[in-house]
């Protein structure tokens, strides 16, 4: 191996070989997948997220939620995801076609969020929980108080003002979610992949 061209060809070939296998082929196989369209209603699956939820997905990225929360439900033989009630079925590639980045995750310091919108459909609960995650006893999730505004009430109190269990609000003040918090909660509520797909029917 004293000749540079030969060495170079070798290291080039092994690199391309793996690139074709692990990058190009999956991209060709999965990169252009289309949503499933209901022939009667014309509705698309997975559904198109609202603009607010799409913004919320960016907040999710910005806060690094993916480092503790996965978004994938594995089949029965691969783990207890289904038994824990994290989804009605395993997730499949089509579930993620609208996602960039894709928050599959590799860590479950917190629970899986694939279907959190279905499992916890209350916006108020999410606001309270983001403000004070320790309302779930023993939780180590960091609070996101900086996504809320603690402001003096001027005139009428805001209809969005939150009551946070265990948090005393100073009289004359109110806690209201910022635009980022509203977007993040809209995104979390949009997380519901329990619809039926041809390749992954819900029984």
């Amino acid at each position: 191996m004293n000749s540079m061209p030969r060495l170079f060809v070798g290291i080039f070939v092994v690199f391309i070989f793996a690139w074709v296998g692990l990058v190009a082929t999956p991209y060709l196989q999965l990169g252009n997948m289309q949503p499933e369209v209901d022939p009667d209603t014309g509705a698309q699956l997975p559904p198109v997220p609202s603009g607010l939820a799409a913004h919320g997905s960016k907040v999710y990225a910005s806060m690094g939620c993916v480092y503790c929360h996965s978004q994938q439900v594995r089949p029965e033989e691969a783990g207890a995801d289904l038994a824990r009630g994290w989804g009605a079925r395993r997730t499949v590639p089509r579930d993620y076609i609208r996602e960039k980045p894709v928050y599959l995750g590799t860590m479950r310091t917190g629970p899986d969020l694939t279907n959190i919108g279905a499992r916890q459909p209350s916006a108020n609960w999410h606001y309270q929980h983001l403000y004070n995650p320790q309302m779930v006893r023993g939780s180590i999730m960091p609070p996101f108080r900086f996504l809320f505004e603690n402001r003096k009430i001027v005139g009428e109190p805001s209809p969005e003002a939150l009551e946070i269990p265990g948090v005393a609000v100073v009289p004359g003040y109110e806690i209201v979610p910022t635009q980022d918090a509203r977007a993040l909660v809209a995104y979390l509520l949009s997380l519901n992949r329990n619809y039926s797909l041809k390749e992954a029917p819900v029984d």
């Binding site: 999956p26 990169g31 993620y96 980045p101």
Partner: peptide
């Protein structure tokens, strides 16, 4: 190119 979905997951871990 804007790879998205699970293909992006493959690029990620490759």
């Amino acid at each position: 190119i804007g790879v998205n979905g699970v293909a992006l997951g493959a690029v990620n871990w490759w």
